[in-house]
Nucleic acid binder design. Structure first.
Lengths: 229, 229
DNA sequence: GAAAGACGGTATACCGAGTATGTATGCCGT
DNA sequence: ACGGCATACATACTCGGTATACCGTCTTTC
């Protein structure tokens, strides 16, 4: 759903042929999203069908077929940059479905599911952290690099996103575990006064990158694995 | 990619026919993931083809065709609950691609992209918060509900996930903005000592739902929209 | 100096997810 | 009895994604 727009965005920098577009795309997204060449051609075909792109003449003497944006295509890119991506509908995330099903299904130990996911997430977090360190210091010893941008900004952008995502996922898992404990033993307080963890703080001061301490779940857990690389 | 497994999970509670499965699925995932009926049937067909499920005899007197798990299917569900969902590869998220492209493309004002996304995210956060409040107190005044579980746990699980996700996204946007400022004016500190926002704290004490204050980006931003009710 | 093969580029076939639409049937209410 | 509606099943289609086939050129190697 985002690949077509990405291709348009790349073409807005000038005409290019399929393989070059693929290379550019991967380069500019931190090589985090390997793009199958086939997809590039089928997508280009669809874009051409929709009048957003045109083949700029037949194959040149080296067999390449450059494509360029039409005016409609250029407009499309423009609005893409302006319009925020839609987050209003929930994103069919496997983990969310799985956990929602788990807590709603008898015979399933939701706690165990959470535990498994959590240890995996922590391992993943470790991996990402290591990657980040490697990113900031590519050649191990020298930090006196003459190049001011030794690593691409794109790399960092996607890496950071993954870091924030795992971290958030961990907190969410903790929170759900807390919910489970409450529900299982709704001791004296039947009313679901469910702590409003992030929401309260975030709405109170959403402009600052305010954390969401979740006081309701001081769940004990296996010790953190060795953290340094 | 997760719907087939979900259907198997539902069938593990006993045989059911297509439409019933759809209803169950939506019920147990907080009605956040509307599932097209057609998809249920095609998925069931594939599952039957793969031997994970069998039609339990022809249509009954009301035209329904119940399916039940095979042993292989049951095993599949078992391993699904045990195996954490894979987060090792980056999840083709439109926003991530878009922003990675934006920062790597001249002629594109990445700051503006971030701004647009941020205001949208804040509006969304507000909406979710409102939904959460409505969830905890469905009938407005009385909190003396006799029912201990007036709202389904599944609802809460997916709602909370969305809250954590937006919040994390906001922090990430802030962080990227910080990166942009650094890169644009790499004043006296050329070495990218990039603050390790979440990673450091999360690995230091991952068991507590520890927040990840990002001290590097005290970016000013438009005031928070009205937050209450 | 030609066969073999690596390489770069294009194109097609295939699968699964997801959506829209069609069709049969039973149950109403008038 | 008939129109309308709900229920359940089924098919057709689009799109994202992967694998693979194909074709020309350049290089290697005997």
């Amino acid at each position: 759903m985002s690949v077509p727009l990405s291709l348009l965005a790349l073409l807005s920098q000038g005409p290019a042929y399929g393989a070059r577009i693929k290379a550019d795309f991967e380069e500019r997204t931190g090589r985090a999203f390997p793009l199958n060449v086939g997809q590039v051609y089928t997508t280009l075909a669809r874009l051409e069908r929709d009048g957003l792109v045109v083949a700029d003449g037949g194959p040149d003497d080296e067999g390449r077929i450059p494509y360029r944006l039409t005016d409609a295509g250029r407009a499309e890119v423009g609005t893409w940059w302006e319009r925020p991506v839609d987050r209003t509908e929930p994103a069919r995330d496997e983990l969310v479905m799985k956990l929602a099903l788990a807590v709603a299904t008898p015979d399933v130990d939701a706690h165990a599911v959470i535990q498994h996911q959590r240890t995996a997430a922590m391992a993943h977090l470790q991996r990402l952290t290591r990657a980040k360190l490697a990113l900031s210091a590519p050649g191990s010893p020298p930090q006196t690099e003459p190049v001011p941008t030794p690593t691409s900004l794109s790399d960092e952008v996607v890496l950071e996103h993954r870091l924030y995502a795992v971290e958030s996922e961990l907190r969410w898992l903790d929170h759900v575990e807390g919910l489970l404990l409450h529900r299982r033993a709704p001791q004296s307080a039947p009313a679901p006064s469910v702590t409003l963890p992030s929401a309260a703080s975030a709405t109170a001061a959403p402009s600052a990158a305010r954390p969401a301490p979740d006081p309701s779940t001081p769940i004990s857990r296996p010790a953190a694995p060795d953290t340094r690389h």
